[in-house]
Amino acid sequence: MPDAVRRAIERFPESAEAIANLAGESEAFRSICEDYDLGLATLRRFESQLGDNRQRIAEYRTLLLELEREIERALATAGRPIDP
């Protein structure tokens, strides 16, 4: 399983099976997972750096929330909504 898909599963562990299945079926969904993984890595890098990165950190947190919603929408559209 690609690391990017693992990151999505780490965020939504209750939907691990649905995420893994959809990632296996949909290149578009895998691309969303890859974007999420890259955004998360970038956020962590900014958070670990010295200096004033508050604006970039805020931007990446917003981006990650948007990607999380996109993951949720993709799962719902595929008939696999996030389990509560």
Rank of each mutant, 00 (worst) to 15 (best):
A74H: 06
R7D: 13
A18D: 13
L50F: 00
A41P: 02
A58T: 07
N21M: 15
E72I: 03
R61M: 06
L75P: 05
S48Y: 05
E17G: 08
T42F: 10
F12L: 12
D52K: 00
M1E: 03
P2I: 08
M1C: 01
S15N: 05
I9F: 02
L67K: 10
R69G: 06
R80I: 02
L38N: 13
N53I: 10
G79L: 05
R73C: 06
P81S: 09
G79S: 02
C33F: 00
I32S: 09
I57A: 01
R6N: 08
L50M: 02
E34N: 06
S26L: 02
A76K: 11
S26R: 04
R44S: 10
L22F: 00
I82S: 07
E25W: 00
E10C: 08
Y36M: 13
A8G: 10
P13N: 10
E14N: 14
A20E: 09
D83F: 13
N21L: 12
V5P: 00
E27V: 05
R69I: 07
R54K: 08
I82C: 04
L40S: 11
P2D: 12
A16G: 15
R69M: 09
E10G: 10
S31I: 05
E70D: 09
A16C: 06
S48H: 04
A20S: 04
T42A: 15
L75N: 09
A16L: 08
G24F: 05
